[in-house]
Design a protein around this nucleic acid. Sequence first.
DNA 1: AAGTGGTCTAGACCACCTT
DNA 2: AGGTGGTCTAGACCACTTA
Lengths: 233, 233
Amino acid sequence: MDIRTPFEMRPGVPAYAAVRDVIRAEIMDGEISAGARLTTAFLVKRFGISQMPVREALQALEGEGLIRILPHKGATVLSLDSKRVGNIYDLRGAVEALLVRKCLPNITNAAMAELSEIHRVLKDAVDRGEPRTVFDLNTKFHSLIYRYAQNPEAEGVYDRYAKLLGTLRGRYGFSPFRMHQMVDEHDEILDALRRQDEAELDVLMRSHVEGAKLDLVSRIEIEEAAPPKTGTL
Amino acid sequence: MDIRTPFEMRPGVPAYAAVRDVIRAEIMDGEISAGARLTTAFLVKRFGISQMPVREALQALEGEGLIRILPHKGATVLSLDSKRVGNIYDLRGAVEALLVRKCLPNITNAAMAELSEIHRVLKDAVDRGEPRTVFDLNTKFHSLIYRYAQNPEAEGVYDRYAKLLGTLRGRYGFSPFRMHQMVDEHDEILDALRRQDEAELDVLMRSHVEGAKLDLVSRIEIEEAAPPKTGTL
DNA sequence: AAGTGGTCTAGACCACCTT
DNA sequence: AGGTGGTCTAGACCACTTA
């Protein structure tokens, strides 16, 4: 592997963080493909740093679910195929349904007003066809709700895969259908929040996340069926 | 703090793992109380090792949810109060309901037979009043089901807090009522599994975990109201 | 500015997997 | 037994918080 990004230390950025970010980007870009082995020795040479920061970078990436470190076998890159992304969405669906239910006793009127405002701006972004803005506002909408659940453990699970799924969304985008569906579902969620309808919120949030899952997974599956660059030559 | 457990390296056990285990045990025993600050400098002196393994031990404990490391502020011990334990159970309930639903397409007849057998032995342990065996068999029962969900991410969340809650159970035990309730609920879960009743399993598993939560949380709350050793003198 | 916390290196050594 | 991977030390230096 060549050194595309000529690696240079920036002051204030620890080596392990810089290396972690470079490797993460390369995995997400598919430049390092699933199953590839990341050996410490190679990375030490490539980045010109010592073993400890390399090891910390790898441990961080394992924590993010991008690689797996097997004792005395080294690190291998995990796949982000449709199956795994589907699993992550299933997990998120369960957790988000919990979070939205648990926010009910705590959510304030002011928060509801803020949600409505986010929702309004999100609708505009959908109408103008700005998927990046849609993604950001969607994240904001959900995070705001979950903050009121007062369950940091569950929020942590939600956050854990946020960046990962966000990057995938950046690559695959939303279908126009999905963006409109999202708006409708947010409408229903807002309404159920106002009515404090716990059972309904549970159902709504699950199908909301299921909708997001289907949209992204189907796009990944299309690519899996017909790889963009490397064919099965 | 004194050095209760005279720390000595065992061959084959890395220093960071040994230190991590000692600190974990002390936190779980309540010997290091919530809010306590764990400074690297102190631990370096106490265990007679260098900074790197101490740091790794702390990072591992942060991953386990026992401490929190704030940048340039050091590590503080998180509390395992009833609120937090309740949160963890809520998270587990959501995830376990997901796992039991997702196992339906994959679970085998042989697995069902094994579950019935575990269930039978568990009932005996309840009748003989052996909470430790009950705990182990309950864990086995659940883990076996979840293996068939084929969702490593969700299983990971389940596993993440397993040791933590297990240790708390070891301290607080089960109420006799809870043990009998558990058996009944396992009965119903087995039945719903046989019928492949997804919606019913969702409901059953949530209330099953909720039952476990109430039992443990109430026991913790009793202790919080009347601390066993240190009073509010 | 001082103090604390965080990170890095270079080299050494140990442990486990593969011959 | 050799090779790879994993871990440790000792000291140095940098970065952030606090006064």
